[in-house]
Nucleic acid binder design. Structure first.
Lengths: 341, 341
DNA sequence: GAATTTTAGGAAAACGCTTGACATATGGTG
DNA sequence: CACCATATGTCAAGCGTTTTCCTAAAATTC
């Protein structure tokens, strides 16, 4: 490990001069600076991150905090794609990313203490379910932080527009003549509440009847519960003509039930997912869904956080809402045209 | 930020005493140690990771290196599950994990230099495709390192037994009467080569004919190429009765083609995937596949690396081979029983 | 050419922690 | 009681940087 000291000896100057040269400080002559830089690169110098961190109080590391389910980042494509986007954005600015499972065993201390210990420069908080004490401690801390799909008035946030997304999806489905639309939703989170509210609002406005039995709870990224809910919906005296699923994964649960009952999609029933993950495009027919802008979410969250870190005094915590995009697959039948079959 | 110094002042002792007390060194009396610990926890002390790292030369951070495709860890469930397992194992030992995309923009310097700069205590290298110069520099470095699904004689490795896995899969399929088995394989990697070799070996031993046209290249985690390859196979004068896919994702590409041609699985054609990701179990019928032991792979890689880090002199680089498990779904028809209809 | 400003570079402290050498106190032994 | 071993705690160096303050030399001004 080459140190500044060794470079200084080689160049016959002081450690301070070397440091300043490499950091392009103005009070070193161009000649000296170049000489030092040449020597450094020739010797294969790499600064010591720990020493720098200790001195500057900046670790150049970001914590990626997962609450609801630590595995989700590794297994749910929605979170995975956001994480990938954050990472690629962060690495351009020289930051490392460290995913933290906040329910993890290693998390004996409070999350806040752990973050302080590690000295993360900032945090991106995603996958928020409940808001325990330890969580709020983090949110109210002094650490720069951006939340995703969750809002706190004093914190920056990037959220996918679930209200509009749901509305777009329903508008599309309604436009194709559907009047009995059921909604199998995910577990209770901010996202779910937004989608539910948007669903009810739309149905009210459109004058659709929403029997309680049309709204069923299930779990994100899980096929079984969605399949069971689907079965219940199909057994109703007046079953829906279209079913919305919590996400694209869950829609597969529905597909399984339809196959079991020899019901064909979209001829006999229509469905839609949510997220627009690759799976949705790989199915045949392609799943109609709302594609969330994972790349944008990650990029904006990363940039927002960088601003909060680098210019904390100028930072105004905004809540950025990113639109999703209707992915028109082939799983919603058009009831307004005479059936050709 | 509470420091040792502040605790020392409060306790009326020296910084050294505080440090030793908290680190449970033997030369501090139980009484003093307790007093110090009480004060520390009361004051909410958290050690400073950077200072500790600087002094001890141990960062308690592990780099998770991805070569082939930096996104794969975030999008391919096989890698994701391994990563999740590594993380949960590492966090028990107090290590942070940092995924590094080795093709990334931030990776201007060599990977080795970056690792030295960050001071990772060890590396887990996965998703290895080609082996460029910069990669070998890393492999031959002094940094403790374990590879996954790739072997170097002087480095620890954990590999999924693709040879046996392939053999188990083929044995099962052959046992059900299939004699014309095609193999759509992934891009050229160590894993692919093992599977191919195992495939050819089995077919030779079993006396199966393997026309060149039965072996087709595709790409892991991609449906389109697999779908195209499937189409070609179906168009052969003598098409296979069973098709093996690079992985479970790719098998979906096959399913799409079958649906397009109104071919039913497994009645008219049999298929098998590889990996045993959740998707495989969510399909109907369940996909017959080899489930790789992602949890075991992650756990063993993590433990092996920890040994290499903590007892470098005792460390003998072993290559651990973990078996997969046949997941008997419903996509391989039994040709040995008379067809019921 | 003296006074002043500018420029280039150095000395040294500090960041918070660990650790081996050293000092002091305590108790046991002959 | 002198001597030594052990137990307990302190000193201080040092990890590799950054950065403030300072000095000496050079350039500029009058």
């Amino acid at each position: 490990m080459i140190t500044l000291k060794e470079i200084a000896e080689r160049c016959g100057c002081s450690v301070a001069t070397v440091s300043k040269s490499l950091n392009e400080m103005p009070d070193i002559s161009a000649l000296t600076a170049q000489r030092v830089r040449d020597a450094a690169s020739e010797m294969g110098y790499q600064p010591n991150a720990a020493a720098r961190t200790l001195k500057t109080n900046r670790s150049r590391t970001i914590g990626l905090m997962f609450f609801l389910d630590g595995r989700s980042v590794w297994s749910h494509e929605y979170f995975g794609m956001i994480a990938a986007s954050i990472q690629s954005e962060m690495e351009e600015s020289g930051y490392d990313l460290t995913p933290i499972n906040c329910d993890g065993v290693g998390m004996r201390a409070s999350q806040l203490n752990y973050c302080r210990y590690r000295g993360y420069d900032g945090l991106i908080v995603m996958s928020v379910g409940s808001t325990g004490e330890s969580f709020m401690e983090l949110i109210d801390s002094e650490i720069p932080l951006v939340t995703i799909d969750y809002e706190f008035h004093h914190r920056g946030a990037v959220i996918s527009d679930n209200v509009q997304g749901m509305r777009d999806l329903l508008t599309y489905i309604h436009g194709r003549g559907h009047r009995r639309i059921a909604f199998i939703h995910g577990e209770d989170t901010s996202v779910t509440r937004n989608r539910l509210a948007s669903y009810y609002t739309f149905c009210d406005e459109a004058g659709l009847c929403v029997p309680d039995a049309y709204v069923k709870p299930a779990i994100y990224r899980q096929t079984q519960r969605a399949q069971a809910a689907t079965r219940e919906l199909l057994a109703l005296a007046q079953p829906p003509t279209c079913i919305l699923y919590p996400d694209d994964y869950a829609a597969v649960g529905g597909l399984n039930e339809f196959r079991r009952q020899h019901i064909t999609v979209p001829a006999q029933i229509s469905i839609a997912g949510y997220d627009g993950i690759e799976l949705a495009r790989d199915l045949t027919p392609m799943l109609t869904t709302i594609q969330q802008d994972t790349t944008g979410i990650g990029r904006h969250a990363a940039r927002m956080l960088l601003k909060a870190i680098e210019k904390p005094r100028n930072f105004i915590p905004r809540h950025m809402v990113l639109p999703g995009k209707l992915l028109e697959g082939g799983t919603v039948k058009d009831l307004t045209v005479p059936d050709a079959g």
